[in-house]
């Protein structure tokens, strides 16, 4: 690894002061993404500011019926938290579908959001990559792009955001609480991650000198009709080729409220308001779900190796919505998709 300095932040204000004073410094929380990138010479911070001991480790109920999750709550603790298991099981399932138990024990809630949007070339410092080195070109567009994006791509980058947790957070319309030198503000999850456009080197709308302090979940948890389905090359411990988070509110057979987000297909968790509109008020059946899938995938474009993702995503959307409607969410340990 490259040499770097190490300091600990004593509180949130100190963390902001330290990062604002040193543009080449980075926060480290669980370290599972940042140290991986440093070892590949993709991230080259001169100083790591350890925020892992800051008191941001609580999960508490909010006055308006929601839940506030501290940025340092480990992924495992969040997934198994009684409040989350009972009221936001979609979030639990999505977290447990990601990485491994060892990594989830280390990974923090905030770090999961800020982990880099990436592709194999991003990790290989010997290849051109606009995300790693702006202006150098994109090796994936005409290269091996089986894992890359089909939606929201640009000529400069077709990488995907790898988080499972964020796909559920998109459906739950989570709110990210951040603090920086200019004070505290909130960012809706939908506005947190960015599309690549001409600046693929910038993954999120978090300023470099801002720290995430918490993630807020609104009261609506969709704990009856939900499912998270993750399709990948191995049955576990692999990133999604396509994943779908679906949440429904039903009145008998009729859909009152619907939310769907896709993972593994874009630079950010992918939602389409129009697709959710066509679900509302309709019968919860396969043809309704197929209509929504068509709208969600409108404009989808493959780059050769990843063409299969379009058809796979269409079937996965229909299947996940069916699971949600039946109230039989995808099991994490039984790998059969029913």
């Amino acid at each position: 690894m490259i040499p770097f300095q190490y300091t600990r932040a004593s509180d949130v204000a100190d963390a902001i002061k330290q990062i604002a004073a040193d543009p080449s410094a980075k926060f480290i929380a669980g370290g599972t993404n940042l140290l991986d990138l440093i070892k590949y010479d993709v991230a080259t911070p001169t100083r790591l500011i350890d925020i892992s001991r800051l008191p941001l480790g609580n999960v508490e109920e909010t006055a308006n019926g929601g839940v506030l999750i501290g940025a340092l709550v480990p992924n495992t603790d969040l997934a198994y938290h009684p409040l989350i298991e009972a009221r936001y099981p979609l979030l639990s399932r999505s977290i447990l579908a990601g990485a491994s138990q060892q990594l989830r024990n280390m990974a923090s809630t905030g770090g999961n959001l800020v982990q880099r949007t990436r592709c194999f070339y991003f990790y290989d410092a010997t290849t051109p990559c606009n995300k790693r080195e702006p202006g150098s070109g994109c090796s994936a567009i005409d290269g091996i792009n089986r894992i890359n994006a089909i939606l929201g791509t640009s000529q400069s980058c077709i990488a995907t955001h790898p988080s499972d947790m964020c796909v559920a957070l998109a459906v739950l319309e989570a709110i990210v609480h951040v603090t920086g030198p200019a004070g505290a503000r909130t960012i809706a999850l939908a506005d947190f991650h960015r599309l690549p456009d001409n600046t693929p080197q910038i993954d999120t709308n978090l300023e470099p000198d801002e720290i995430i302090t918490a993630i807020e979940l609104p009261a609506k948890g969709f704990s009856t009709n939900y499912s998270y389905l993750k399709i990948r090359d191995r049955l576990s411990y692999a990133f999604a080729l396509v994943s779908v988070a679906a949440a429904l509110e039903l009145d008998g057979d009729t859909i009152k409220e619907a939310r769907v987000a896709l993972g593994g297909v874009a630079h950010k968790p992918w939602r389409s308001p129009a697709a959710e509109v066509v679900l509302r008020g309709q019968r919860a059946d396969a043809s309704t779900f197929a209509n929504a899938a068509d709208i969600l995938l409108r404009g989808a474009r493959g780059f050769g190796h990843n063409d299969f993702k379009i058809g796979l995503a269409r079937r996965a959307i229909v299947r996940t919505l069916s699971q949600a409607a039946r109230g039989t969410p995808q099991s994490i340990s039984d790998k059969k998709i029913r």
């Binding site: 599972t32 140290l35 070892k39 790591l48 990485a99 491994s100 138990q101 990594l103 024990n105």
Partner: peptide, 23 residues
């Protein structure tokens, strides 16, 4: 050395982690 295999698993304060991805 990248969190991908688990050979480096140890228990820290009773929880299993990948010792290759922590300082």
């Amino acid at each position: 050395d990248h969190g991908q295999c688990g050979a480096c698993t140890v228990l820290v304060d009773g929880r299993r982690i990948n010792s290759c991805l922590t300082l």
